[in-house]
Design a protein around this nucleic acid. Structure first.
Lengths: 218, 218
DNA sequence: AATTTTGCCTAACACTGTTACAAAATGTAA
DNA sequence: TTACATTTTGTAACAGTGTTAGGCAAAATT
């Protein structure tokens, strides 16, 4: 009975084409033009077909959310493979995080921007655990075992994540741009050329020093 | 001719009632139920009346955006009035920022969440300059004049802001909650009770130390 | 060949922001 | 007070959105 097999395959194909087409539209036209009807038009099916694959619009967004966090976790994992020094791993992950955000703006905007994620949503994104583990493992590797009994990996994990997200979030919007400089009146000076990266380095540097300093004081 | 005077006053009243009613609805029902038609219903006018006061929906949002940033800047200004020590001022502003965000979730969600602010939007929020100045003035006061020639107040301002926003942003969503703990299986332990505040202290502390350490190394 | 099941589409419902146009209310002038 | 002009307001439409009920036709089963 290869018939139900073929049907299964065809159904999968439609589902994939929904996601592919939707993503393509988001990348080329932004989230504001993410619409069930437009997707239906593009895949040349009627609207209810989409609802036979996804419960509602949010379910499609959730799918992309999962992919996004999975991609982020994988990216960080790969980034820290280069070295075995925990501090270097932290630095590598920081720049990888930054690059991921700006190379996948659509993902990042979905993951943090569109709609405040609820507890239920978060529980449906297993890759968040991966993300947590990848970061935390480097953090615990930074402190010698036994020393720093007050060291809280989860706290440091949240600090690290918050720093990075804050940096990205503000720089991805126009809020991070210097104020009042509508046109580049003194572009040549360049003290603030590539400022965001400097801020990133600055913040990551003091984060790492914060952990190492506590190491020496105990 | 007090007639046009009275008309002016009445028009202002309607405008105010639009904003008041809209805000009331947002606070009680969230941003998802922010609708021109609902506002029109609530103020007992027809829809086009609203469009005679605001160009479109975004114009109303912009109004709240301005108020939000003005409120934030004022809050920080008041918070640092307590002390004259720059480091204490930074600390005070950090906690004030945190409190502002969670006491005015609707404002904060609008200011950073709903729609990525563009350059044009940012230029229409004058309070951003105030915010910048309030924070920066304490930052420059931290370093003795002459020392630290490489000290960049704008960079540190961005670091500070990013840290705070990242912290707030992640903790205001469900992303900041410990993973997998759907129900409070071990609530009594309490190592992570009030963790967000600890993270805030941790991050602010290392930020200040980062500036002070550079002071001593030059 | 008749019947059941499946897949699919049309059309509707209830919303949204926005606007053209007509009606009503108001002000001004004779 | 009446006639005209102006401003203010409401109705109703247009073009979208997410979502779903009902029916039709093709495919699979009996």
């Amino acid at each position: 009975m290869g018939i139900i097999d073929r049907k299964q395959r065809q159904k999968e194909e439609v589902r994939a084409s929904i996601l592919d087409t939707a993503w393509q539209m988001v990348v080329s036209e932004g989230w504001q033009s993410f619409s069930i009807r437009k997707i239906a038009d593009a895949i040349e099916y009627s609207v209810p077909v989409i609802y036979s694959h996804f419960e509602n619009k949010d379910a499609i967004l959730l799918e992309f959310n999962r992919k996004g966090f999975q991609l982020l976790a994988d990216t960080l994992r790969k980034a820290k493979e280069g070295t075995s020094d925990p501090a270097d791993q932290i630095r590598a992950m920081a720049t990888a995080y930054w690059n991921f955000a700006f190379e996948n703006k659509e993902y990042y905007q979905l993951m943090y921007g569109l709609g405040i994620p609820t507890c239920e949503t978060v529980s449906k994104i297993p890759a968040l655990v991966d993300f947590n583990e990848v970061v935390t493992s480097s953090l615990v590797a930074m402190v010698a075992p036994g020393k720093q009994p007050s060291f809280d990996p989860f706290l440091k994990y949240q600090s690290f994540w918050s720093m990075l997200h804050g940096l990205v979030s503000i720089n991805m919007s126009a809020l991070g741009h210097p104020i009042g400089q509508t046109d580049g009146q003194d572009k040549k000076e360049g003290k603030h050329d590539n400022l965001p990266r400097q801020v990133l380095d600055d913040v990551v540097c003091s984060f790492i020093r914060g952990i190492q300093a506590a190491e020496n004081n105990h």
